[in-house]
Amino acid sequence: LETFPLDVLVNTAAEDLPRGVDPSRKENYLSDEDFKAVFGMTRSAFANLPLWKQQNLKKEKGLF
């Protein structure tokens, strides 16, 4: 999966995202380093959170 810089994904409308980016899964296009910096946890820890908590975190970080 291709990764993009944080500033390309945060608070970006679906139509302005790079081609192929799923707007409902912007976090998947962050590098592992950016993911950890944004969410303060690994991808696996994030995946283990309840869906509502994942969505709330994504909203807080501008990735929803």
Rank of each mutant, 00 (worst) to 15 (best):
P18S: 05
M41N: 00
D22E: 06
A13S: 14
K26H: 03
N56T: 11
E33R: 09
F4L: 09
K53W: 11
K26Q: 05
R25W: 08
G20K: 06
E2S: 12
L57T: 03
L30C: 03
K53S: 10
E27D: 04
E15S: 12
N28Y: 11
D7Y: 07
V10D: 03
P5E: 06
E2I: 15
G40L: 08
K59E: 10
A47G: 11
D34F: 02
E27W: 01
Y29L: 04
K58V: 05
G40Y: 04
G62N: 06
K53V: 15
P23S: 08
K59S: 08
D22I: 06
Q54L: 01
V21E: 02
S24P: 03
F46P: 00
R19S: 14
W52Y: 11
A47S: 11
N56Y: 13
A14H: 12
A45V: 11
V21L: 08
D22P: 03
W52L: 08
V10Y: 05
E15N: 10
K53I: 14
D22Y: 02
L6V: 09
N11K: 12
G20V: 08
A45K: 09
F35K: 00
K58I: 07
D22C: 08
S24H: 13
F39H: 00
N56S: 14
K58T: 02
A45F: 11
L49A: 01
Q54T: 01
A13H: 10
G20D: 08
V10C: 09
R43M: 06
R43C: 05
E60I: 10
L57P: 00
R43F: 06
L63W: 07
V38L: 12
N11C: 13
V8T: 08
P5W: 02
R19T: 15
V21Y: 05
F64W: 14
E15L: 06
K61N: 11
F46L: 01
F35R: 00
K36W: 15
K59P: 00
F39C: 01
K53Q: 14
E15D: 09
L30A: 01
F46N: 00
V10A: 09
F4H: 08
L51V: 12
L6H: 04
D32Q: 06
V10I: 14
L17H: 03
P5N: 05
A13E: 09
K61A: 14
T3S: 10
D32I: 06
G20Y: 11
D22Q: 04
K61H: 10
K36Q: 15
D16F: 10
